[in-house]
Design a protein around this nucleic acid. Structure first.
Length: 642
DNA sequence: GTAGGGTTAG
């Protein structure tokens, strides 16, 4: 039978093919007679008569049909038209004997784009043969949707099948190596990259350096970056954001400026990354400069960029600007809301946070997530709205918003009780939690015990805390403060001894102030600043002056075994006092002073700033690790609880 | 036909 058709088509192609009106039936007959790429088919297509016959009918053989599928699928991909794509897929199965690899790959791309990863994978699994493009398309699908381990497994499978990865494969698979488990494989992939000489390929290199940066290996990342023979926006942005994401804000800013001088072009991603660094530094002048740059560049609206502007202004202390940007946005993501809520929370504006949260729920366009609740709850805590905070938490527990509280949310509740002086309730709450309390939760309760002078619970909590987190110097400081406030000096001494034995000071304290776009950084007892003598003299002067108004140095903040005079000297060398004094020296009277500290502010420095604001009539805005302290006329917006 | 960087919290 087959040879008869073959023979007929071969000898009388016009008659045979024109007698079949349906083009798909024509193709089916052709294909069932001659499987694609078979030598017979090639012979057939070299038949002049047949070619003419096909051309007359507007069909140039199989490729015409395939090209039809190809263009329809391309259209489906660009429009994310899944329904139409599925229809074409079904049609193709019915009519094509053996769709070529590139058509099946199009299907994989289409299904991935439409988030139908299972369908895409099925297409790949059913392929009689695969090439590097089809493998890479599927790996990319997994990577882009966050299925890192699936992406990595498939990559390994690809290697085992004997298919060699290309630059596309490396660039995509390395983005899945950012988890700690993936990083091990990432290093191995790096050696493959070197073997195939792709390390200096700009896409592969960017992906590689990003992997190292996200693993905290910034030096490795920088090495890859420096080895790139050419740079573009993406590779530059990757290294800048690498620094910024690790909190190396100054390095990020310096590199950004250097690359800019060297002619780097920036886009909205670059700006968003730089703004992250500027938020960390609270460098308002720089931030404003970037903002005006963005405005002048007349970029289209990018949610991500606006979100980082909201964050930058709020972390630089200008909440009004944050809100202005927030209000002007034509569309918002959950991050826009969160950034604004976090801003209110860090500034202690509980009422504003709760109002905004209400608005978010009324608008009902964006679903609150874990961060939203953290921001609202800690906003209530910092803003003195304990009851409202508890209400929101219990609404969460009752699943009113479709979101179950996680351990961090329980931590916020401990904070809420603690702040309200309900230390016993906080303690009971921890005991009944469905989670094992973390060091952060015990730490929060210990802080409450110090402020509300509950030595009884405080001792218990501290003992637990020193068991699970014996190396954290902060815990010893709080416990010692607690004992000191109860006048238990022997215990203060014991804690000090214990601390000497076990505690590690992880991060040295430092404070900084921005004056005319320059950041001035001070470390404790800093002797390196060019104007150190002047600064130290100013601290002594301020100290004498505010003592007249009632300031008493909080010597229990010093855990060194030295005499009181020495202790006072150590206190005077705290970095936030140096930065504050420098601010007073450099700015005219009445100007508000903005200080940033990398750790929590200490009790003595907090007191110092309060007295100073009253005696000198200076507004002090101090951002510490946890929140803003707006200190005016002797009182602080934190209500002395932080 | 397949590819790299980004925003909140911790």
């Amino acid at each position: 039978m087959i040879w008869k058709i073959t023979s007929l088509i071969f000898h009388r192609p016009k008659q045979v093919l024109s007698s079949i009106s349906n083009p798909f039936s024509r193709q089916r007959i052709l294909l069932s007679t001659f499987p694609a790429n078979s030598p017979d088919l090639k012979t057939l297509c070299s038949n002049r008569q047949l070619k003419e016959a096909l051309l007359e009918m507007g069909i140039q053989g199989l490729e015409v049909e395939f090209q039809g599928y190809d263009s329809v699928l391309t259209e489906c991909i660009s429009q994310t038209a899944i329904r139409e794509g599925q229809r074409v897929h079904a049609h193709m199965i019915k009519t094509c004997y053996e769709p070529p690899v590139y058509l099946r790959t199009r299907l994989i791309v289409l299904y991935n784009k439409c988030r139908c990863l299972g369908d895409a994978r099925r297409v790949l699994d059913e392929m009689p043969e695969r090439n590097v493009v089809s493998w890479t398309a599927m790996i990319s699908g997994y990577s882009q949707r966050g299925y890192a381990s699936e992406a990595l497994h498939l990559f390994v499978e690809m290697l085992m099948s004997g298919t060699a990865p290309n630059e596309f494969t490396f660039a995509t698979v390395l983005t899945s190596c950012t988890s700690s488990s993936g990083f091990q494989l990432g290093r191995q992939i790096h050696s493959l990259v070197i073997k195939t000489s792709f390390e200096s390929h700009i896409f592969v290199g960017s992906s590689l350096l990003d992997m190292y940066a996200k693993a905290g290996k910034i030096c490795e990342a920088r090495r890859v970056f420096d080895g790139l023979p050419e740079r573009d926006v993406v590779s530059c942005t990757a290294i800048i954001s690498g620094y910024a994401q690790l909190g190396l804000d100054e390095e990020a800013l310096d590199l950004f400026r250097r690359l800019q001088r060297e002619g780097m072009r920036s886009n909205y991603v670059t700006y968003a990354s730089v703004l992250t660094a500027l938020s960390g530094l609270a460098a308002l002048d720089h931030g404003r400069q970037v903002h005006s740059h963005v405005l002048r560049a007349k970029l289209p609206f990018y949610v991500v960029l606006q979100n980082s502007l909201i964050d930058m202004y709020s972390k630089c202390g200008s909440l009004t600007y944050s809100r202005r940007i927030f209000d002007s946005m034509p569309e918002r993501t959950v991050i826009s809301w969160n950034a604004m809520l976090v801003g209110y929370s860090k500034h202690g504006l509980g009422r504003e946070a709760v109002e905004l949260f209400k608005l978010m729920k009324e608008e009902n366009k964006v679903k609150p997530d874990s961060v939203t609740f953290l921001a609202v709850l800690s906003g209530c805590s910092h803003g003195g709205m304990e009851d409202r905070g508890l209400e929101i938490f219990y609404e969460m527990v009752n699943q009113k918003d479709g979101f179950e509280p996680e351990i961090e949310h329980y931590g916020c509740v401990v904070d809420l009780f603690g702040r309200a002086g309900r230390v016993e309730e906080a303690f009971e709450f921890i005991k009944k939690m469905p989670f094992e309390p973390t060091a952060a939760i015990w730490g929060s309760l210990l802080g409450a015990c110090r402020v509300h002078q509950n030595v009884h619970i405080g001792e218990f909590v501290a003992r637990r805390l020193l068991e699970i987190e014996s190396e954290n110097a902060g815990n010893y400081v709080i416990l010692s403060n607690l004992y000191a406030s109860a006048g238990r000096w022997d215990d203060v001494r014991t804690v000090r001894e214990l601390m000497k034995e076990k505690a590690v000071i992880k991060e040295p304290g430092r404070s900084w102030i921005e004056l005319d776009q320059t950041l001035h950084t001070f470390h404790a007892s800093d002797r390196s600043h060019p104007r150190k003598e002047e600064v130290f003299a100013k601290v002594r002067e301020l100290s004498i002056k505010i003592k007249e108004a009632g300031y008493v140095p909080e010597l229990s903040c010093v855990l060194y075994d030295v005499d009181d005079e020495q202790k006072e000297k150590i206190l005077q060398g705290h970095s936030e006092k140096l930065a504050l004094a420098f601010g007073l020296i450099c700015t005219p009277g009445g100007t508000p002073v903005r200080i940033i500290k990398n750790l929590r502010i200490c009790v003595d420095c907090h007191n110092f700033a309060k007295f100073l604001s009253r005696v000198y009539g200076r507004e002090v805005s101090l951002r510490d690790k946890n929140r803003f302290h707006h200190i005016v006329g002797g009182t602080c917006s934190c209500g002395d609880y932080w």
